[in-house]
């Protein structure tokens, strides 16, 4: 418990550190936010006034604390792309919902498809089924997800007409329709990851099967299937969890190209347009979001490890 408590403190400190570093980084980047907000022909007095009003004349630590005060309440300022009329938090919130749903759906597909396939492949090692799974995963691993997105659009959108390509349905209008539409990009995101997961899980399972404790279980008179589910699987999942966490962080950060192909208003596209428009307030929050995501996921993975593996527990 003491260990977990320490981990929590370290976790909070790293979040603060991340926020401070990203804040400083965006302060260091050349460019004048007053100038970009008011336009090139703003007068000197106007600029001074704006800086004063926005607290830009204060020193870096004070500005950070001011920013932090707002950030904790969910206020990240205004977006310059929308002439300071749109709150960054509102902008991000709408996009985040899309990205989160995409991530949740594709993560579920990844887990639900790859774990059974990996187990099947390892159980039928070197059989026809295993060879087939290996071949298919090999192919899908080398296909980029945006290309899959195009193929899916072509087959299910244009030929089969199961959905209307590019016709994004927002969750407020029709949640069921939204989910149905999101399935297709989720599949495009999931397939290459599934291929990697199957390969990874298969080799992890096969490695475990060679170990001494499996021989012990056999000598007890257990059936192959109960050894697999009773002993091997949990051990084999330990390295897989780290891999899954990396996958999750990756898809939560937004799949820019897939969003582009399906015309989804997700975080990835927002990041790209904000960078192009030098909308630093938005870019800052997205960078902070991605960095925090990695920290949070690592923290959760740590907790899961402790729960699964008694050797990691330290009290």
């Amino acid at each position: 418990m003491k260990y977990t408590f320490k981990k929590c403190i370290v976790f909070i400190i790293s979040l603060f550190l991340t926020s401070f570093l990203t804040f400083t980084a965006f302060e260091v980047i050349p460019g004048d936010s007053a100038l970009s907000a008011l336009g090139m022909d703003a007068s000197k007095e106007h600029l001074e006034e704006y800086r004063k009003a926005m607290g830009l004349d204060k020193s870096l630590p004070i500005r950070y604390i001011n920013w932090l005060k707002g950030a904790i309440k969910g206020d990240f300022g205004y977006s310059s792309s929308y002439q300071m009329q749109m709150k960054v938090s509102t902008l991000i919130k709408n996009r985040l919902i899309v990205t989160l749903w995409l991530a949740i759906l594709s993560f579920l597909i990844i887990v639900l498809v790859s774990i059974p396939l990996g187990i099947l492949s390892a159980r039928k090692k070197n059989g026809i089924l295993d060879d087939l799974i290996t071949l298919v995963t090999q192919i899908f691993m080398s296909v980029p997800s945006f290309f899959l997105a195009m193929i899916i659009t072509l087959i299910f959108g244009i030929t089969l007409k199961w959905f209307r390509p590019g016709d994004y349905i927002s969750p407020e209008d029709n949640f069921g329709g939204f989910l149905r539409f999101m399935m297709y990009p989720a599949i495009a995101v999931a397939i290459p990851k599934i291929a990697m997961m199957v390969k990874f899980l298969r080799s992890s399972l096969l490695r475990e099967m060679e170990l001494d404790y499996v021989r012990t279980a056999k000598s007890k008179g257990m059936t192959k299937i109960s050894i697999l589910f009773g002993h091997i699987l949990k051990n084999a999942l330990i390295p897989v969890i780290t891999f899954l966490a990396m996958v999750l962080a990756d898809i939560l950060a937004g799949a820019i190209l897939v969003e582009q192909v399906f015309n989804l208003p997700g975080l990835g596209r927002l990041l790209v347009t904000s960078i192009a428009n030098r909308d630093y307030a938005v870019v800052h929050v997205i960078v902070l979001y991605i960095a925090s995501l990695v920290i949070i996921i690592n923290f959760i993975v740590d907790l899961i490890y402790q729960w699964i593996d008694p050797r990691v527990r330290r009290d």
Partner: peptide, 23 residues
């Protein structure tokens, strides 16, 4: 399989790795 463990059982050399570390 019914004989294994019940009628004939085995003690192995590797006392660490012969146990499942997670149980």
């Amino acid at each position: 399989r019914r004989l294994r463990g019940k009628e004939i059982s085995m003690v192995f050399q590797e006392n660490m790795s012969s146990f499942n570390p997670l149980l």
